[in-house]
């Protein structure tokens, strides 16, 4: 349970971090909150020669409005998702998801950018960037770019991030008056990884759904948007019949992995139950 020996460098700026990474090669890792990385090092699942601490880079901090987006700095801690008024007002889905992320002490250290970069398919925040239609701002040796969340999550713990790149911020479209959201998950114990979880964001005119984005986590190798299911809901209100049709459509969107503990049929069933509950709640708020 002890990490292999490594060197440590605390970067003061993004340039310093990228430069250290470029010179150390692939044997270096960035560390932010470290709430997933430190256990991985202790268990020697990873054994880099150099850790580059990015938590003192002020450019990666802060939450502010920028155009039609809320710019959430990569170092924003999970606990700030609960305490920051701008998040509650303009990204309420993240505010609603935050209490479900691990335990209080983990939320005091873990960072939003770190969670998105880690891309754990059982984590809440990566899936929420999909539901929100967020964009991930990245910087690396060849400059900066923005990647849509829809294009960011590639495979198990694999993202659009290239070697040497890091996330600087996540841009979330500002929450609007004609939108509604829901978040929920099913876990055996509060704070445990969810058996299945879901977040959704709908835009509606009266009771009619004009657009809806629904994203699941703990259902496969990546956080998963269920586009076929979304399509069954657009253009009508959230009546019982419509909700049943959406539940039936889930089977075409999800292919849960084989697991002795939670067989695919069980996970699909739980996803249907969760979807039904959440759409019901969304309908009541129309």
């Amino acid at each position: 349970m002890k990490a292999r020996a490594f060197s440590y460098f605390r970067a003061a700026t993004i340039d310093q971090a990228l430069d250290a990474r470029a010179r150390a090669g692939d044997d270096a890792r960035f560390i932010a909150g470290g709430q997933s990385l430190v256990p991985a090092l202790s268990l020697r699942l990873q054994a880099p020669r150099l850790l580059i601490d990015i938590t003192h880079i002020s450019e990666l901090r802060g939450v502010r409005r920028e155009g039609g987006y809320l710019r959430i700095g990569a170092l924003t801690r999970h606990c700030e998702m609960l305490s920051e008024p701008l998040i509650a007002e303009f990204a309420p889905l993240l505010h609603a998801a935050a209490p479900f992320v691990a335990h209080p002490a983990i939320r005091n250290r873990g960072t939003f950018g770190g969670s998105v970069a880690h891309a754990d398919p059982a984590s809440e925040f990566p899936a929420m960037t999909l539901a929100l239609g967020a964009e991930i701002e990245i910087i690396g040796p060849s400059g900066g770019r923005r990647v849509k969340a829809d294009d960011f999550f590639v495979d198990l713990f694999e993202t659009a991030l290239q070697p040497g790149e890091l996330i600087t911020a996540v841009f979330v479209p500002l929450f609007k008056a004609d939108q509604r959201f829901a978040f929920d998950e099913l876990a055996r114990r509060r704070g445990d990884y969810a058996l299945v979880g879901c977040g959704m964001l709908a835009t509606s005119t009266g009771e009619r759904i004009d657009d809806i984005r629904i994203s699941f986590f703990s259902v496969g190798n990546t956080p998963t948007r269920v586009k076929g299911t979304e399509a069954t809901l657009i253009g009508s209100s959230l009546g019982a019949e419509r909700i049943a049709a959406a539940q039936a459509a889930l089977e075409g969107d999800l292919a849960p992995p084989d697991s002795d503990e939670v067989p695919p049929a069980m996970r699909l069933h739980l996803a249907r139950v969760l979807l039904g509950r959440m759409l019901g709640r969304l309908g009541e708020r129309a």
Binding site: G34, V38, S42, L51, D53, C79, H103, A105, N108, R109
Partner: peptide, 24 residues
Amino acid sequence: MGACGACLVQLDGQAVHACLMFTV
């Protein structure tokens, strides 16, 4: 590994796992 909570301390006034950070 951050699961049991026996190592909690306050870091700058907030509870954190002392096993989930390096002293540096």
